[in-house]
């Protein structure tokens, strides 16, 4: 598989003393869905800003499809490929009409008028907001606004979509909407997704999880592998997703079920099996 993003020994500090990120290295393959988890202040949002050159690593290297995020000349190429969706939808929307906002990115790239129109169609369709094209974003719900923010990034046709706590300010309904859209983009449009979050249940869906603590990657692996290390996670202030908590509780009570259950369906199946056996 092609490595689309490489982070090599990246370190960063805001004040030249306290390192927010220490010697971080990881690679992302095209089409992968990665979750980066860590509690507040772990350095995960700083990492997001490193990925598209909003911040430049003090040492080390971030490369996207062979373009360095360090180099001023290739910065534009990096940003074209890495779309970042931030936490607060209100602070990402530039224009007072949905279609004008989605057009903002393509306009910056200097794309022809006709193609901008096509890109708006594509982006709004991808997030399921076609009928809101002429509406003012102030009249939309949080989840809808965030979907417009995603559409605004998609209109740049990025290869990597970085979600920097993009669901943190949303209600459960809005969070579900956004996650469904992201999942669809990953599956159907083959967009590489890097989801930075402190909601463990959002990481369940990922192909791979990186756990950050105090600016270092302390764990990495599939959700099953990571969630199996419940004790270590708890030590760095991260709670397991509810289903995993139930499972580990049941195991403690002496139930003979597998440790690596992640979803409600799997749990249901395992419990039914257990009932049949007895």
């Amino acid at each position: 598989m092609e490595k689309i993003l490489k982070v090599e020994n990246a370190s960063f500090s805001y004040d030249k003393q306290n390192k927010v990120l220490k010697d971080i290295s990881f690679e992302v393959e095209r089409g992968e869905y990665i979750a980066i988890i860590g509690h507040n202040g772990s350095g995960k949002s700083t990492l997001a800003k490193l990925l598209n050159g909003l911040l430049v690593a003090d040492s080390g290297e971030v490369t996207v499809a062979n373009f360095s995020a360090k180099d001023k000349k290739s910065l534009f190429e990096v940003r074209k490929r890495v779309g970042v969706v931030f936490q607060n939808p209100d602070n990402q929307l530039v224009a007072s009409i949905v279609e004008d906002d989605v057009a903002f990115g393509p306009e910056n790239l200097g794309i022809e008028r006709k193609e901008i129109g096509e890109r708006i169609d594509f982006a709004l369709k991808a997030v399921g907001m076609e009928e809101f094209r002429k509406v003012s974003p102030t009249r939309l719900s949080g989840g809808q606004k965030q979907r417009i923010a995603i559409a605004g990034v998609l209109a740049l046709k990025p290869e990597i979509l970085v979600l920097d706590e993009s669901t943190a300010m949303l209600d459960p309904q809005g969070r579900k909407e956004v996650l469904e859209v992201v999942e669809k983009l990953n599956e159907e449009e083959k967009v590489t997704v890097i989801a930075i979050t402190h909601y463990m249940e959002e990481a369940v869906r990922a192909d791979r999880i990186l756990v950050i603590n105090h600016g270092e990657i302390v764990m990495s692996g599939t959700p099953k592998e990571v969630f199996a290390r419940a004790e270590e996670l708890r030590e760095i202030g991260l709670e397991l997703p509810p289903v995993c908590q139930i499972v580990s509780g049941l195991i403690k009570k002496g139930l003979q079920i597998e440790k690596e259950i992640l979803t409600e369906e799997e749990l249901l199946e395992a419990l039914c099996e257990l009932l049949q056996k007895n």
Binding site: L54, R79, V84, F86, N91, F104, G105, L109, A149, L156
Partner: peptide, 13 residues
Amino acid sequence: DELADAMDSRCYA
């Protein structure tokens, strides 16, 4: 500040 970051991310130059 956040808006500036978002605009930068969307290739505003």
